[in-house]
Design a protein around this nucleic acid. Sequence first.
DNA 1: GAGTGGTCTAGACCACGGA
DNA 2: CCGTGGTCTAGACCACTCA
Lengths: 247, 247
Amino acid sequence: MNTVRKCCARETLIVQYITIKKALYEQIEAGMLQPGFRLPAERQLAEMFSTTRVTLREALALLEADGVIYREDRRGWFVSPPPLIYDPSKPVSLRELAERQNRKAKTIVIEARKMLADKTATQILTLPPMQEIYRIERVYELDGRPVCAVTHYIRKDIFPGLLDLDLTQPMADTFGNHFDLAYASTRYTIANTSLIENRAAVLHATDGTPAMHIQRINADQHGRIIEGVVEHWRHDAISIESEVQFS
Amino acid sequence: MNTVRKCCARETLIVQYITIKKALYEQIEAGMLQPGFRLPAERQLAEMFSTTRVTLREALALLEADGVIYREDRRGWFVSPPPLIYDPSKPVSLRELAERQNRKAKTIVIEARKMLADKTATQILTLPPMQEIYRIERVYELDGRPVCAVTHYIRKDIFPGLLDLDLTQPMADTFGNHFDLAYASTRYTIANTSLIENRAAVLHATDGTPAMHIQRINADQHGRIIEGVVEHWRHDAISIESEVQFS
DNA sequence: GAGTGGTCTAGACCACGGA
DNA sequence: CCGTGGTCTAGACCACTCA
């Protein structure tokens, strides 16, 4: 048994899972493995690298953290497609964004209902207590892969009857076409989290999958906060890019 | 032995490491554990939750992914302080940013040298081949904790003698005071990665620690690209927040 | 020098996916 | 129904940290 004993990343000693990570990475980068390609079974890979599944999975987790591969719950590991370039400072719908980058986007409605504003909603929309709002849960698919779980918190008093409209459309379009309101400004927050429970499930992800959390608070042309959006992206599926002029 | 067998996150069955994660999270949120507090030893925690170190570490990894705790290489797990609020669309130095948020920032120079532009530098600065540039590696400390590894790629022809100046100062100040140049626009990219090797070492992090990667390409008032900045933040230490008016 | 985290082994059972 | 990934056990050795 080729038991290379090592420890301590510090001294550039031999760390198996780093070695394995690099080996797999080279294969992928060299274009041997195309986006969407499924890696061999974990037990098989473990044997190929003369190690155990636990150690192998350390290497896979690293590649996942770097956005090189991703996991479908219980289905295996796949090579990540290039990320969608996303500019949160521009009011462009996902559909438009995807089209411009020659990707196919699809929006799926998971749930849409009227509800009493919970803590999150009250805070985001700066509401008084006991307000009714609309909450819409959707999933973005990119080239057939579910990559983002979105929750919209929307002012019910401003958008009466919203739930009767086609909720697979970009929200900005619906707001514009049916209510004559447009996004005039947005405040956004980006941080890292992990997917759990329902959010993981709708993205076919395992509990604990790393994700990028984007929250937007949108105001209309009258300066009113009309909507809060919380997005959880599979973090390999997205890259934030923006350009700013300083005045 | 309380061997709660479970499987599959899907059905909300009992998953030990999720349970443990939540238990620890509650303790922390309840304010029982203050920022900077060191968690008990892994073996101790494992025993407290009647499990093994491997499973316990799954739970810790989840909390780490959520930015609730962080790891100092070989020293243990600590409760994360609140993140620094960071707006990449504003030309504010880290020093100023930290001060405004009542935090203490310190910049440490790791290495500063003249070098032939490598692939990254050539690409970022849009240089012809075989150009000499300055590369400066620094580390940001926040309240005494190293949280960000920064690499500056700087046009040598535009900033002659830069290396003789005080490189612990904010780069914008140095550019302004000594060369009469200011940042006029920036293009930035945000993505996730993990820290490895040197970058991990300077932040006292373990190989594979999740990190936020921010790259900025800065132009001066004459429209020239003068500097590329690559930052790797411990991802619990930072939260991106910005506000935009659409025109 | 004791204790801790970093890394690794060699197994195991379960539930789900897909044939 | 088989193979796979998801989860877990019960150990082990090493190098580092810190008292």
